[in-house]
């Protein structure tokens, strides 16, 4: 489910033709989305702003070469992710901190606290247990969940963005996470039922 995809493509084509107003429209639309995404990898907002500034300027100066982009959203997310992770790993290399894990980056996901439905005590309670499950997932699982449920990107897009060899890996990653969430909700219900 890609929302407003036709609008994306239209703006993109105008942008590729070198329309400066299209550039303004493009960054104003995508900056908040990409900023939020980047913010899941790092808390360093000034680093994110620097990375995104470079990114958009490079995009603008080489726009004519990017005429054949089909899915603007996944295209932008792939490129921004690659750039951000490169900068983060350079920083890490400098601070010589080796995490010694198979995961080269962190991905953080906080569930909304201000959703009206969560004000109900029972749901608030469930939110906490789901957050606990999410915290226990791997970074890649959290990222896949984020892209699928928060950014409405399909399996194909997720596989592309997260450089997976096959699309089905995206589905597997997400299903495993959802099964864990389901189990914890079921246990929580039993628990609240007992009380």
């Amino acid at each position: 489910m890609e929302v407003g995809q036709n609008d994306d493509i239209q703006l993109w084509e105008q942008f590729c033709k070198g329309d400066k107003r299209a550039f303004d429209g493009l960054w104003a639309y995508w900056f908040p989305i990409l900023f939020k995404y980047c913010n899941r990898f790092t808390d360093d907002k000034s680093l994110i702003k620097d990375v995104l500034q470079d990114f958009f300027i490079e995009l603008f100066t080489s726009r004519s070469r990017r005429n054949n982009v089909q899915h603007v959203k996944s295209y932008l997310m792939i490129a921004v992710r690659r750039k951000l992770l490169r900068v983060i790993s350079q920083q890490k290399a400098r601070s010589t901190e080796d995490l010694g894990s198979d995961e080269s980056y962190g991905f953080y996901l906080d569930l909304s606290a201000d959703h009206p439905i969560i004000e109900q005590q029972e749901l608030h309670n469930r939110k906490q247990v789901v957050q606990h499950v999410i915290n226990g997932l791997s970074n890649r699982q959290r990222e896949a969940i984020y892209l699928y449920f928060f950014e409405n990107i399909g399996y194909e897009g997720i596989a592309e963005i997260m450089s997976m060899k096959e699309v089905k890996y995206a589905r597997t990653l997400i299903y495993r996470a959802l099964d864990e969430m389901r189990d914890v909700i079921a246990r929580n219900k039993q628990l609240t039922g007992l009380l």
Binding site: K36, D110, L111, S112, H115, I117, L123, V130, L178, I185
Partner: peptide
């Protein structure tokens, strides 16, 4: 359960 989980999976605004 699915309804609850989808309702919970909402983004914390960090734009």
């Amino acid at each position: 359960t699915a309804f609850t989980l989808l309702s919970i999976l909402k983004e914390n605004e960090n734009g």
